[in-house]
Amino acid sequence: MRKTARYSALAAAGLLALSSLTACANDVAGTASSKGDGKGTKVKIMVGGLDKVIYLPAMLGQRLGYFDAEGLDVELLSEPAGVQAETALVSGQVQGAVGFYDHTLDLQTKDKAVESVVQFSHAPGEVEIVSSKAAGDIKSPKDFKGKKLGITSLGSSTDFLSKYLAVKNGVNVSEFTPVAVGAGPTFIAALQKGAIDAGMTTDPTVATVLDKKAGKVLLDMRTPEGSQEALGGPYPSSSLYMQTDWVNSHKDTVQKLANAFVRTLKWMSTHSSTQIADKMPADYSQGNKILYAAAIESSLPMFTKDGVMPKDGPETVEKVLKAFNPNIKNAKIDLSKTFTTEFVEKAAG
Rank of each mutant, 00 (worst) to 15 (best):
S34K: 12
T158W: 04
A347I: 07
D252V: 08
G307C: 02
K148A: 12
T87Y: 05
F67V: 08
V209P: 07
S156C: 03
A331W: 02
A32S: 13
S237H: 15
G36C: 09
D306G: 06
S238T: 07
A258H: 05
E126N: 15
E86W: 13
I196G: 06
V247T: 14
D334H: 05
S20I: 06
A195W: 04
P124Y: 02
Q62A: 14
A123F: 12
L56N: 03
L240K: 06
A97Y: 01
E342W: 00
L77M: 12
N330I: 03
F144S: 08
D278P: 06
K52R: 14
A214N: 09
A113G: 14
K329I: 02
D68L: 01
F303R: 07
D306P: 10
I333A: 12
H103A: 12
M280T: 08
T270P: 06
A135E: 15
G96I: 07
F187Q: 01
T41C: 00
D159V: 00
P236R: 04
E75Y: 05
D245C: 04
E315H: 02
N327F: 13
G36A: 08
T253F: 00
Q192A: 06
A25V: 02
R222G: 09
E225W: 01
V74K: 02
V83I: 15
P301S: 11
K319Q: 10
T158S: 15
G155I: 07
S273H: 09
L105R: 05
T244M: 05
Y7H: 14
I54T: 10
P314Y: 02
A180Y: 04
P80Y: 00
V217L: 08
I333M: 10
L16N: 13
V43R: 03
T31Q: 14
E86F: 06
T205N: 00
G313N: 07
F67Q: 07
